[in-house]
Nucleic acid binder design. Structure first.
Lengths: 188, 188
DNA sequence: TCGTATAAACAACAAGCGTTGCATATCCTT
DNA sequence: AAGGATATGCAACGCTTGTTGTTTATACGA
């Protein structure tokens, strides 16, 4: 829906979207997503409320966009988007998702129902696309294995990020990896 | 939060909640969850809007409660809640979740973002609790396997229910089962 | 540099939300 | 059957939402 932010865009648009994003992410550190109103966002961004609606359908679309951006950055940072399937890459992927969710839980105030649900949908979409890309040359169908692996990765990462006392991440991923990898070994 | 509806309750409460539930479920067959307002629900239920808020925090809480009720019924119907872990029961569980989501997609108009997210959270909670119950006597930790299995089951069922042309359910479950069972075999 | 296109600001709108205080109806207990 | 307790009806509140029409400011091509 929203194009790559680096594209050539009217500088006014770029500025406004930047302000909205920044304002929103700052607000997430202060209060529940549920209790953030569009008014809050536009106040802090110092733009008019009507202008917000010229860029995003509602605050859920904004959350979606924001999460997508943040998660994609993490994927890019580890160049996971330009490789193929092997156990090491899978391990790194699990690690990224765990770290990402853990950071959300640390940085954002009370990630509650709606917030978590939206994050889940968004992140799983990206993980699934990535896995499908990794397995793109397989002779056999990757649909179900990729589906299961995606769900498992997210489920494990979510579980990890909700722990009161989180174990060392590397240790946790060692435990988690085989549970995910077992259905993908045929593609290694 | 809300107690068992069969409990001894003030008949007025029972009646009101029944009317709300029924009105809501009828509305879901007519329009998007997103576009159903509390007003809509109370109009059709013929109760006052303020009364609604005496029973549910908001329409999301109502959805949550409704889904919980419906799904629990399916579980009860197949007496999956009074058994232990084996492959047959697991197969039935997968089947129930697939059927349940497929029915939601058939009966409800346009199950969109918010709706789906809420269903996911609610159903996964119940599946996880059920699996944990099945594995309750295990010597080793069931946390991660149950987490992975729960996610996998839901992911597969969601995948199934989104297919344009759904394959025969039994056939699909045959394909899906081993992907879930493999991490639970140690408990059989 | 001028003119047009387009974004942003502003103001107002109907609608929904969640809450309140109070009156009325229904309940349960004794 | 009478009492107090509690659920519901009703009306109004301040607030947020998403939208619209108009004006002002900024960008960009000719």
């Amino acid at each position: 829906m929203l194009p790559n932010p680096d594209e050539k865009l009217d500088p006014r648009v770029k500025r406004t979207r930047g302000l909205i994003l920044q304002s929103f992410e700052n607000l997430l550190a202060e209060k529940n997503f549920e209790s953030i109103s569009v008014q809050d966002v536009t106040d802090k961004a110092q733009i008019n409320r009507a202008t917000f609606y010229a860029h995003f359908q509602d605050k859920y679309t904004l959350l979606d966009y924001s999460i997508n951006q943040m998660f994609m950055q993490e994927i890019d940072k580890r160049t996971l988007n330009i490789c193929t399937y092997n156990t090491d890459n899978l391990r790194n992927l699990i690690l990224v998702v765990c770290e990402f969710l853990a950071r959300l839980h640390t940085d954002c105030v009370q990630p509650h129902n709606q917030f978590e649900s939206f994050v889940e949908t968004t992140v799983k979409k990206q993980v699934f696309d990535l896995l499908s890309y990794w397995l793109r040359n397989s002779k056999i169908s990757t649909e179900l294995p990729a589906t299961v692996a995606t769900s498992a990765i997210y489920g494990l990462a979510s579980h990890y990020s909700h722990r009161k006392k989180r174990p060392v991440l590397d240790r946790f991923v060692d435990e988690a990896l085989p549970l995910v990898a077992i259905n993908l070994e045929q593609f290694a």
